[in-house]
Nucleic acid binder design. Sequence first.
DNA 1: TCCTGTGAAATCATTCACAGCC
DNA 2: GGCTGTGAATGATTTCACAGGA
Lengths: 232, 232
Amino acid sequence: MSAFPDLPEATIARLPEYLRALHNLGEGGADTISSEGLAAAAGVNSAKLRKDLSHLGSYGTRGVGYDVTLLIEQIEYVLGLDQRRAVCLVGLGNLGHALAGYDGFASRGFKIVALFDADEAKVGEQIQGLVVRHIEELGRVAVEENIAIGVIATPARAAQAVADVLVDAGVTSILNFAPCVLSVPANVDVRKVDLAIELQILSFHEHRKASLTALPGGRSAAAAGNQEAVGS
Amino acid sequence: MSAFPDLPEATIARLPEYLRALHNLGEGGADTISSEGLAAAAGVNSAKLRKDLSHLGSYGTRGVGYDVTLLIEQIEYVLGLDQRRAVCLVGLGNLGHALAGYDGFASRGFKIVALFDADEAKVGEQIQGLVVRHIEELGRVAVEENIAIGVIATPARAAQAVADVLVDAGVTSILNFAPCVLSVPANVDVRKVDLAIELQILSFHEHRKASLTALPGGRSAAAAGNQEAVGS
DNA sequence: TCCTGTGAAATCATTCACAGCC
DNA sequence: GGCTGTGAATGATTTCACAGGA
C-alpha cells in the first residue's frame, strides 16, 4: 500500500508520546480533545503538536478539537502498530530479564517471541512463558518466526556479532542497549539506549547549575510549588 | 568556578558518546586520534565531531589529531564527571533491579547510594549491598546523602508523587523511566527513557520499509556484507 | 602534507500569528 | 468565539569547504 510522505524525524519521535497521552485521555472518558489539551498531556506546546499532526493529514475539527478515537487509529496506522510485530531479545542478564518482563511491550503492539543467550547456564531457563534458547539458533528462529525487531541486551563485546546474525537473518530494525556503535547495512535501522549516557547528560546540567549558584540568591535545598516545564 | 559557554544541547548529548569511544581507543593503546578516527568510533561524521569539540576549546593539534588522555579529561570535566555524583533509585521492580545492578553507572562517574520502594514486602531486601528503604524516608535521606540525581523506575501512576518528593528534597535532575510526563519546576531537569517508544519508532520505519518492497528488487531475507551506516 | 578549527551555506525544527472553518 | 491548519519568521543543527598551523 502507499508509503508515507516524508514525515520529519522529530515528528515521528513524538507520535508515540501523543499516542500514550491519547490513550490516557480516552480512558479518562474524553471523546474529543483540543490541541492545547493534548499538548499539555504529552508535554509539548500546542503549536508543535498541531504542526506534527498536520503532517498526517487533517483529522481535527476547527472550533472543536481532535476526535480521540480517530486520532488514535490514525497514529497507530502510521506507526504500523496494527500489525503486532514479532520481537526477539538477545542477552538475558539483569537488563534482559527486566525487558522480558516489561508489559509495556505487549500493551503497545509488540510481542516478544523468542529469547536468546550465549551462556549455557541460561539456556533452557523459562522466563515469562518463554524458554531461553542458545544464540546459535537465532538465525534459524528469526527467519521462522518472522522476527521484525531485535533487541540487544548483551555486553558490548558481544553486540556486533549479534547484530551481524540478526542482519543475516533479515531483521531490519535493532534496538541496542549495549554501549557501543553497531555497524550495519544502510537498510537496517538501529536505535540506541544507553542508560549511562542519560545520566551523563544530567550530570552536565548539574555541573552547570552548580557553577551558577554562586551568583544570585542561591536556592537552598527545597523548591516549593509544582509548576510546569519539562527539561528537553 | 566559571560556567560554560552555551554549548548546544545536541553537542552535549554527543559528548558522552565521544567519551566512551575515547576510553575504548585508549585501552586499545592509542595516544592520539584524528577527528576521522574518533568520529568513526563514535558513529558520527568527522565534521560534526570537530565542530562539537571546537565548542570546548582547542584541544587538538593540526596535522596530528587529538591527545586521547587530554581529551578524556576535558570532556569529563565539562560533563562534571570528576565529582562522582550520588544517585538514588526509586522503584525496585524488574527494571529497578536491573538498574541497581548496572555496572555502567559506577564505571562512569555515578554512585547509587540509596534504594526506595513503596512496597513493604520489598523494604529491607538487600540488593547490591544496599538495603531497600521505604519511600517515606526518601525526603530525609536525599538531603542527608546529598543526592544529585533521582532515577524513577516506578509504575506511571506513582511517578509524579515521587518526583514531587525528590524536588522537595532539593534534587534537581531526574531520569524518568515511567511512561508519563512529569511536572517539575523550571530549575529541575528531567530526561525520559521510554522503552516502548523506541520500539514504536522502529516500527514506523519497518512499516515504511514494508510499503516500499513492492517497488524495486525486493530484497529477500538476507543481507550479506557488513557496511557502515547507522540509523539516526 | 596532513589535519584541525571555523566561517558560510544548507538543511532541519520550532515558534509565531492569523486566515479560514465550525 | 473557539480552535485547527499553515505560511512565514526565527532559531538550531548539520554539512561544506577551505584557511592556516604543525
